[in-house]
């Protein structure tokens, strides 16, 4: 089965659209598989995603149940990662926290990547006044310090996960627009785009069917590398009390509430910190590997 798929996908003369597309995907996968750091990153991220999905099955305790008699316990057989200042099980809270944190990251990316891509491709392809107008708007957003704008935005709305996602998205899209614009500028005057103009296709069709797909690989790489900074921004907002609100077990908020015990019961803030570190690092590894795999100049 596996061998059959392999020969089918790697065929030098594919006989259908589907086979050609799968061949491309399979080659990219083989490339990624050959990159150990990338695979480590992918494994860690997959584990965390699975943990988030199956949190109710994996959790040993209810993440909100308090057990004040047993607060700030060291890791032990009953509480694998110990308990926090209200006696809640840290292991279960990390699992549920993965849902909140990863959910925020995914929401930000889903909001940000298409906007950045569209703005950048449109600005780059049309040029002239459209380019100037769109890029100056981008510059305005780029000029704000990210965390400060996010803070102001969250303060203006009500603190919470939705506002945090919106605030981060608002400040995160400009670099993607710039990147997409730069990529568009390198291809817009090429002969293959000229050939598509000679089909009578509209500019929109050319932008979204032919130019945008060329910009996505570098955008994916950039997004993956930025995931860690999104996680950290989300955690920072949580830490400052502007993101997820208690008792929601967001990792940043967990560190914030436990920071008082960092000298005596250091494991309480340390465990969510390790989770943030692992996921950020994993996304960075994966991003680096994807850069090698997806780079259009590479093949």
């Amino acid at each position: 089965m596996n061998a059959a798929f392999r020969t089918w996908a790697l065929s030098e003369a594919p006989s259908s659209r589907r086979q050609a597309a799968w061949g491309n995907r399979y080659r990219a996968w083989l490339n990624l598989k050959g990159n150990p750091l990338g695979m480590i990153g992918l494994t860690i991220i997959s584990i965390f995603i699975l943990m988030a999905i199956f949190a109710p099955l994996l959790a040993t305790h209810d993440p909100a149940t308090q057990e004040l008699a047993n607060r700030l316990a060291a890791p032990n057989a009953a509480h694998w990662f110990g308990t926090d200042e209200l006696g809640r099980d840290v292991f279960s809270r990390i699992l549920y926290g993965a849902r909140v944190t990863l959910g925020m990251v995914i929401a930000v990316v889903v909001l940000v990547a298409p906007i950045g891509l569209a703005v950048g491709c449109i600005a780059g392809y049309f040029g002239g006044i459209v380019d100037t107008a769109l890029m100056r708007i981008t510059d305005i957003f780029l000029a704000f310090p990210r965390l400060v704008l996010a803070l102001a935005f969250v303060a203006a709305l009500k603190p919470g996960i939705e506002s945090a996602v919106l605030a981060i998205a608002l400040t995160a899209w400009p670099p993607y627009a710039r990147l997409a614009r730069a990529e568009t500028l390198t291809v817009r005057n090429s002969d293959f785009i000229a050939a598509y103009r000679l089909t009578g296709a509209s500019s929109w069709r050319i932008i979204f069917r032919h130019i945008a797909p060329l910009c996505t690989p570098s955008l994916i790489v950039r997004v993956t590398l930025d995931m860690s900074s999104i996680i950290i921004t989300a955690a920072s907002l949580g830490f400052l009390g502007m993101g997820a609100q208690p008792p929601s077990p967001e990792w940043g908020a967990m560190i914030a509430t436990a920071k008082r015990f960092i000298f005596e019961q250091w494991w309480v803030p340390m465990i969510p910190a390790i989770a943030i570190l692992l996921v950020s690092l994993a996304f960075n590894f994966l991003g680096d590997a994807l850069r090698d795999v997806l780079d259009p100049k590479g093949n």
């Binding site: 594919p14 659209r17 050609a20 090429s190 002969d191 293959f192 000229a194 050939a195 598509y196 000679l198 089909t199 009578g200 296709a201 069709r205 032919h210 797909p213 060329l214 259009p296």
Partner: peptide, 27 residues
């Protein structure tokens, strides 16, 4: 029109099938 450089005039990420079907799809 046919362009000078066959290395630059075909979309690098599309199959021949996709390149050829664009004009018939548009029209």
């Amino acid at each position: 029109m046919v362009f000078q450089d066959p290395y630059g005039s075909l979309h690098p990420r599309q199959t021949i099938d996709r390149i050829l079907s664009e004009l018939p799809l548009v029209h």
